[in-house]
């Protein structure tokens, strides 16, 4: 009768946003269960509500119906056990890299760790993301990739149960992105965090994830398909480039995005979109636009 509680569980989540023309249903009937230590990517077209799902798990948004359980407890407010890596790093521009992480560490471990322990912990986390050499630099003095590293260090330093990443590498150039993806895989192997990551990048999703959750287009977006990525870890991007299994997974995701789900056109603004979004459309192949705009 009584099941052991799942690690992270989204059940029948709907969300309505109030607009002048009445409520706008952004998400409808999202059901998702995530296991401990799993790396899950959310992928879908811009505006399909990926960020909204993440924000519900973070507690920044409240679901209109349904809800989110983390280790059997309802999520109804933000908290450091669900650390967020924001899309545009969101570091405090007036604090150095060290001080940015320190703010989070003091908040989480202010009572349990001594000053020296906190210092060591901050430095440890910054060195995890290879930022120990620029601890005393402020965000405007370091590059975009370095800022995002500090953002990740800040999230890691909170020792989160679940790490939520909102297109963490979307604004970075391809080389920096590859580098950070490798760092992230290493860190996740060591710490075994649960990670939910939003991405627009098919390669990134396949390379990093245990499962890819593909979302249908909004309004009233929901989970379209879930793809299990059964590739052995550690994964090497160069070896995988020729791997038929890897390419098969890429193909699956691309098919979902560009054939089953057409790029949303003006449909975003229309109040109600019918089931047409689910119909297979083969006539329109759009090249993938990376980081085209800031989703949802």
């Amino acid at each position: 009768m009584s099941q052991p509680p799942q690690h992270l569980e989204l059940t029948k989540v709907d969300i309505d946003f109030p607009t002048p023309n009445g409520p706008f249903k952004a998400l409808q009937d999202i059901n998702l269960t995530i296991n401990k230590g799993e790396f899950v990517s959310l992928i879908g077209h811009s505006g399909c509500g990926k960020s909204t799902v993440l924000n519900i798990v973070a507690g920044l948004y409240q679901a209109t119906n349904g809800g989110c359980l983390l280790d059997g407890k309802e999520v109804n407010a933000p908290g450091p056990e669900r650390a967020v890596v924001f899309q545009n790093h969101s570091l405090l521009p007036w604090l150095t890299a060290y001080e940015n992480v320190e703010l989070a560490v003091k908040q989480v471990f202010g009572k349990s760790k001594s000053k020296a322990e906190m210092r060591e912990w901050i430095e440890h986390n910054l060195s995890l993301v290879h930022m120990d050499h620029a601890m005393d630099k402020r965000p405007d003095e370091i590059s975009g990739g370095m800022k995002q590293r500090v953002g990740i260090a800040r999230a890691l330093a909170m020792e989160p149960t679940v790490m939520l990443m909102d297109e963490p590498f979307g604004a970075l150039d391809a080389l920096t992105r590859a580098h950070l993806q490798d760092s992230l895989m290493e860190i996740q192997k060591d710490l075994n965090n649960t990670v939910i990551m939003i991405t627009h990048d098919v390669d990134e999703a396949v390379l990093l994830s245990d499962r890819i959750v593909m979302m249908t287009n909004g309004p009233a977006a929901t989970v379209g398909e879930i793809l299990h990525i059964d590739l052995p870890r550690p994964r090497d991007r160069i070896a995988l480039a020729d791997d038929p299994q890897y390419n098969h997974y890429r193909h699956e995701v691309l098919t979902f995005l560009y054939e089953k789900q057409r790029t949303p056109d003006s449909g975003l603004s229309s109040k109600k979109k019918d089931e047409a979004t689910l119909k297979v459309a083969t006539d329109e192949h759009k090249p993938k636009a990376k980081g085209e705009d800031k989703a949802a």
């Binding site: 973070a58 920044l60 933000p78 450091p80 967020v84 545009n88 969101s90 405090l92 703010l103 909170m158």
Partner: peptide
């Protein structure tokens, strides 16, 4: 910025720290 407010919320900064730090 909304982002910094979100940071403050995720960190659960109390009222005073929110004012002083953010």
């Amino acid at each position: 910025s909304k982002d910094l407010q979100n940071v403050s919320q995720v960190l659960r900064l109390n009222w005073f720290t929110h004012i002083v730090k953010i």
